[in-house]
Amino acid sequence: MTEELASVEGAGGAQVTSATPGHDRPRDSAKVGDVNCLRVLLTVMAIWCLGLPGVSAVEISRGPLVQPTPTNAVIQWTTDTSAGGRVYFGLSVKQMDRRANADAVGTEHSVVLTGLKPGTTYWYTVGTARLALATNSFTAPGLSEARTESPAARPVVSAPVVRPEVTKSVVPPVAKAAFDPSKLQVPPARQTWGAPRSLADHFERHGADFAARTADDYAAQAWIFLRRAKAEGLPAKRDEEGVLRVYDPKTRAFASYNRDLTTKTYFKPGRRDYFDDQPGQPVDLNKLVP
């Protein structure tokens, strides 16, 4: 059967002579078409079966760990169930256009990335052929400082690696308008907090800074803080990704908000220069906050 199909395919659908001994009559084009349609149908079905979602619920249980050299990197990770392993990688989060496969299916995965350039930062995603499990970055050691740890591994007093937007804050004149929070209708925390699952953790860490009684009270105070910052003209800056950072020099309260103005965090930094060291350009909150 395979031999027959091979001869049909090679002929490109035209009338062909079967290669099978004992069959001297040429096949007609209808049968050639039927065979080709069957091959296409079987191929589509195979692709569909392999692509079924939820076939496996693979999760990472350890790693990924990276061992880079100037031109290569070994990435290892463990999954909770047996699966194939694949790494997509590239020069940015949006441009991971190269890939490398693990040698075998299993729970322990090891992939070697080759062709790297020394001193270059690479972003990578580990997972299977169809499922991304984790994303991170590393820097191939070489000409520039290696970054297997993040820039924050250095003492905090040193300057960050790349902060082109860092500017010294300019404290604008305090607005004369009085701010009365009692007139505000604060939305529920699930609407004001950027990552609702994390609110409890932030409240546990920083709630005492503001004498917050509950996580919802803490989230409400963060929401009110932004409105007060707008009313009073407190220092604010926004970075390239739209992250907003606001600071009250008098109370030392600091908050960060996502582009949609939901809260990322709210706390009181210990360092006086903390806000000045944050990335972003000064911004007028009257133009951002409704």
């Binding site: 790693g63 989060v93 994303t135 991170n136």
Partner: peptide, 27 residues
């Protein structure tokens, strides 16, 4: 999921630091 550079677990919802601005995620 992004990897925490401290504990190396893939449990963060965004990179620990922004590749563009260098700022921390506050996560």
């Amino acid at each position: 999921t992004f990897v925490c550079p401290v504990c190396e677990s893939a449990v963060l919802t965004e990179p620990a630091r922004s590749a563009k601005t260098g700022g921390g995620s506050f996560e």
